Computed example of a mutant assay.
Amino acid sequence: MSGLLVVTAVPAEAEAIQSGLADPTVAVLPVGVGPAVAGAATARLLALAEMAGRPYRAVVSAGVAGGFADRVAVGDTVLGTRAVAADLGAESPDGFIPIDELGMPAELLGGGTALDADPTLLAGLRTALPTATVGPVLTVSTVTGTTASTEELVRRHPEAVAEAMEGYGVAVAASQAGVPFVELRAISNPIGPRDRDAWRMRDALTALTAAASALR
């Protein structure tokens, strides 16, 4: 059996994790931006490892994220209790309808629109990262950039602590392969009106490097 598979969206995130990790049993690979490409690439990596007789024992979706301002600060680390497909559904005059409320069977949704992190993996990371904020992490295909959309997300997901673009796709791939999953994020910006100049990417990448030791 192989070790841990850590997937990120972009090379800078993978490099930040590798900088804080000296463990040859942990593979750290950038797989692309967004839930579709991240899910497809992760599924391929898991399948290739299984066919080679060296299946991965767990998958971590890691990288930077936006954080809900009243729940987590920029530069903080987040551990996802579940990955939520926050924008998978339909609009209606009464508001957004999640796809699992439209009559879709759970088996056609990769197990549902919210996939829980593996409790053992999550517990281990919580012990290793005691100051990390813990809660659901939303997966979106369009990054939130207005006050109105932020307030709508808060209304629909009152416990969520962050949003990113890959977690749910990676979680589906892991679930389909029967491999434990967890999500690790570092906060680069508050969720809200888009202000690219206010993003603190360096602080978030530094936080990822510091958190990487917990993956050994």
Rank of each mutant, 00 (worst) to 15 (best):
V74L: 11
T25A: 11
S92E: 14
L205I: 15
T81R: 05
M1H: 12
P136D: 11
A173D: 06
P190A: 06
T139L: 06
S149I: 03
A85S: 12
Y168G: 02
A173C: 10
G145C: 05
A214Q: 10
V31F: 04
Y56C: 12
A47R: 01
T206Y: 10
A58N: 08
L153Q: 03
A186P: 01
A41D: 10
A16E: 01
E152Y: 07
P158V: 12
A12L: 01
A9G: 01
F96A: 03
V182S: 05
T77I: 00
L184S: 02
E151Q: 09
A198W: 15
V64F: 02
L29E: 08
L115K: 00
A106Y: 09
A164Q: 05
A38Q: 00
T77A: 00
G53S: 09
V154K: 04
G167Q: 03
A114D: 08
A106S: 11
V154R: 05
L121A: 13
V137G: 00
L215P: 04
A117Q: 09
L125Q: 08
W199M: 07
G80R: 07
A132Q: 09
D76M: 07
A14K: 05
G39C: 00
T150Y: 02
F181R: 00
S149H: 07
V137L: 04
G89P: 11
L46F: 14
F96L: 14
R82I: 15
M104V: 15
V31K: 04
R82Q: 14
T131C: 09
T131D: 15
V161R: 07
G32K: 00
V137H: 07
G192L: 06
V134E: 09
P193Y: 09
V31N: 03
D23I: 14
G167Y: 05
P158I: 12
S213E: 14
V60K: 01
A90M: 10
T139F: 06
R44T: 09
V143Y: 04
L122P: 14
R216P: 04
L102V: 14
T206A: 14
G111Q: 05
A73L: 15
M165V: 14
I187G: 03
D197P: 01
P136K: 06
A162I: 02
S61A: 04
D76A: 04
T127A: 14
P190V: 03
D100L: 07
R57I: 15
G192P: 08
A171S: 10
A207F: 13
G95E: 12
L4Q: 02
A38Y: 02
E151P: 06
R156I: 12
L138E: 04
E13K: 02
R196M: 03
V84F: 09
A177T: 10
L184P: 04
T131Q: 15
G67D: 05
V143F: 00
L88D: 10
A22P: 06
F181N: 03
V143T: 02
G145R: 01
R196K: 11
E101V: 12
A14I: 09
G66V: 13
Q176K: 06
G80I: 15
G53M: 13
R202G: 05
S19L: 02
G103S: 13
S2D: 11
G178K: 05
A27W: 06
V31R: 01
A171K: 05
M165F: 13
L5R: 02
L5K: 05
A43D: 12
L88V: 15
V170N: 00
V143D: 02
T147H: 06
V37R: 07
V72I: 14
A86Q: 08
G67T: 10
P136M: 10
P98M: 13
L21T: 07
V60W: 10
